[in-house]
């Protein structure tokens, strides 16, 4: 399968997002891929918007099955969230469970005016009623397929597709 170039997807995302930004909008990227996408979007938008980083490890719904992620990082929202329109950003949208956790996390910091969701890739397979407001591409992948965003030492992004062992 030919995978799309993340740079093209980012260009598309920026076009979709730009008309919806308010003067007091803020961006929140989900660690780690969502933060890479957020950084790339900010560069393309050319705007100086407040942004923060979310690590959803403490909000995962599978903690009692798989335990705590060994490399949890602190979440950092260095702005007043109360009343702001928030753009939540992740690399790949799959089951929707990460987004559910991220929304819960955001509300523990305060009450935003709104939350919209932007993802680079919507790969289908949702298990929760969550839908992206903006997405770079929609793909229909099988349950055994795993798509991920990677970033090399030169900050170049690329998509990787792996097939789970049968």
């Amino acid at each position: 399968m030919n995978l799309p170039d993340p740079n093209r997807l980012l260009d598309r995302l920026v076009e979709q997002i730009r008309p919806h930004l308010h003067p007091d909008s803020a961006l929140l990227g989900i660690h780690t891929g969502g933060v890479w996408v957020m950084d790339a979007l900010l560069e393309r938008l050319g705007l100086d918007l407040p942004c923060g980083v979310l690590d959803i490890a403490f909000y995962r719904d599978d903690f009692s099955r798989i335990g705590l992620h060994p490399e949890v990082k602190p979440s950092n929202i260095p702005f007043e969230l109360e009343g702001r329109p928030i753009l939540l950003i992740d690399d790949v949208l799959y089951t929707g469970r990460t987004i559910r956790a991220a929304i819960n996390l955001v509300f523990d910091y305060g009450r935003p005016a709104s939350i919209r969701l932007a993802v680079l890739v919507d790969r289908g397979g949702r298990e929760l009623p969550i839908c992206p407001d903006f997405s770079g591409v929609k793909m229909d992948l099988e349950a055994g397929q795993h798509i991920s965003l990677e970033r090399d030492d030169h900050s170049q992004l690329r998509l990787m597709l792996r097939q789970a062992a049968p």
């Binding site: 403490f58 705590l68 949890v72 990082k73 602190p74 979440s75 509300f107 523990d108 910091y109």
Partner: peptide, 20 residues
């Protein structure tokens, strides 16, 4: 120690709890 680092900032939040 690394995990504790992530919990320190929770003390500064509006809601000082996580659902773990």
């Amino acid at each position: 120690l690394d995990t504790a680092e992530s919990f320190v900032s929770i003390g500064d939040r509006e809601v000082k709890k996580v659902p773990l």
